[in-house]
Nucleic acid binder design. Structure first.
Lengths: 152, 152
DNA sequence: AATCAAAATGTGATGTTGTAACGTGTGTCG
DNA sequence: CGACACACGTTACAACATCACATTTTGATT
């Protein structure tokens, strides 16, 4: 269960929220960034920078290098518009860029589908366990590999 | 705090336990495997397969390809002799191969030092949160990026 | 509108991580 | 001996990531 209200967005609405969030953080919402965000949000699984580069190249009818994609993904991750799934070397759009969470990702080993849970009580516990060990946590990485409901 | 007794080993003792564990799982403890395990255990930070290949090559006075290292690392991970740190694309020796845990790694962004906590109550909670979402967990990946006590 | 500086993107090269395919040596067992 | 299983070697390549530097776009200022 969520500990508070979320506003999950999708499609156009999500892009608008992403734009607002990015602009609020002092960055520009350029055509390239809009394109990459919408492509990323269009994937139903975590997408690698190369996946995105391919899809964007396709959509634009010209070659877009992974390099450019990485730059923008880093920006997105910093601005909370996207998340990196460490155990998949891939990225997902954040469905609620306007609120901060330590996410928990559930990654299906069969189909790759990835969902996420926001459970602040868990992530708080993880952070405090780290602190208790004399460690100053900045970014918990909590991902669960296994099988999704469809693949069980 | 640990929920039960651990037997943490190091050096020769650790290698002996690793050997016993591997053999018990029906695999052979070969010269190459012994070498790779001891090299891995000798690193004080998570080591990439390439790091290990270099160190082993050095120690053996001949070229050992990363490929061979990967094979053996996979074997080790399956047999619980080693763990993969996903957010670092690297491996660490397991200091107590004889007991199973979902580990929590604390990875310092400054120096790379990585420690681990075993807190079964946390990992149980993570697993059950996943189950609650209709997901069948097989391997939780719980890592915390931040700063270690020395680097703070 | 013209200019300029900063920011964003393009481009090519290169570094790092991970797999695939197939060959070679060695021990076991008939 | 011959057949087989297993570990390991070797080469090639695929996938992921970054660096350095050129060019274009943008927004601010005049």
């Amino acid at each position: 269960m969520h500990a508070h209200d979320h506003h999950e967005h999708s499609g156009e609405a999500l892009s608008r929220v992403a734009e607002a969030t990015l602009v609020r953080s002092g960055e520009q919402w350029t055509a390239m960034r809009a394109r990459i965000f919408s492509v990323l949000a269009g994937f139903e699984k975590p997408a690698s920078a190369y996946d995105i580069a391919d899809a964007v190249s396709q959509a634009e009818g010209r070659r877009v290098a992974p390099n450019s994609v990485y730059r923008i993904l880093d920006l997105f991750v910093n601005a909370n518009l996207a998340r990196r799934v460490e155990s998949a070397n891939a990225y997902v759009a954040n469905a609620h860029p306007d609120c901060l969470h330590d996410c928990i990702f559930l990654v299906c080993d069969s189909c790759g589908q990835t969902t996420h849970i926001d459970d602040d009580s868990i992530t708080r516990t993880v952070r405090s366990a780290a602190s208790g060990a004399g460690f100053a946590p900045t970014r918990p990485v909590i991902e669960v590999r296994g099988k999704c409901a469809d693949c069980r």
